[in-house]
């Protein structure tokens, strides 16, 4: 299963990544963090296709998706 990594020092909680995730694998956290942002968290990473659009649209280079090679889903 692919993994979501958020750099909490860079993420400003704009949630553009969540909006752009077509399979809805990630969602916004309910609680705000110490900087006042709702960070993206994993919702159901089985849905993650590894398209990495979230990485492309992030204004702060705060998100990376770690691709699980062992369980490579072929579309």
């Amino acid at each position: 299963m692919n993994k979501l990594h958020i750099n909490p020092g860079y993420c400003k909680g704009c949630l553009i990544c969540v909006e752009n995730c077509a399979p809805k694998a990630i969602k916004a956290a309910d609680k705000i963090n110490s900087r006042g942002y709702n960070l993206p968290i994993e919702d159901d990473m089985k849905r993650c296709s590894g398209c990495k659009l979230c990485e492309i649209v992030c204004p702060d280079f705060a998100i990376t998706i770690e691709i699980d090679e062992t369980n490579n889903k072929k579309k």
């Binding site: 020092g9 860079y10 993420c11 400003k12 949630l15 553009i16 649209v57 204004p59 702060d60």
Partner: peptide, 21 residues
């Protein structure tokens, strides 16, 4: 130097990302 000084959700940050790609 990071995070970028730009506001949360600023389009300029996205343009930088697209440009680096």
């Amino acid at each position: 130097r990071l995070p970028l000084i730009l506001c949360p959700g600023c389009g300029a940050g996205q343009v930088l990302n697209y440009t680096l790609h």
